[in-house]
Amino acid sequence: MAKVIGEIVVDIERCKGCEVCLDACPTQTIAMVDEVNGKGYHYMQNIHNACTGCTNCAIVCPDGVITVYRVKV
């Protein structure tokens, strides 16, 4: 069965840490990290490698910081 693996790239310096994307993620693969960016916001990252590339997080992100890639294996 074809499996889909996704990956996100976050523009860390533009992320404002609003956490709206966390609720939108169906696989709970993203989380806020403990580190902060240049403006002092905790930013989001893909931490569990369960991303399916569904683009939900990118679509609700108010600042458009997320770029999504997806590959079939």
């Binding site: 693996i5 996704g6 990956e7 790239v9 590339g53 683009t55 990118a58 679509i59 458009g64 910081v65 997320i66 770029t67 999504v68 890639y69 997806r70 590959v71 294996v73």
Partner: peptide, 16 residues
């Protein structure tokens, strides 16, 4: 499959 295999222009699905 590593992260760098996925992050390629041909696999792009969403971008600002």
């Amino acid at each position: 499959i590593t992260k760098s295999d996925i992050i390629k222009p041909e696999n792009l699905v969403y971008k600002k």
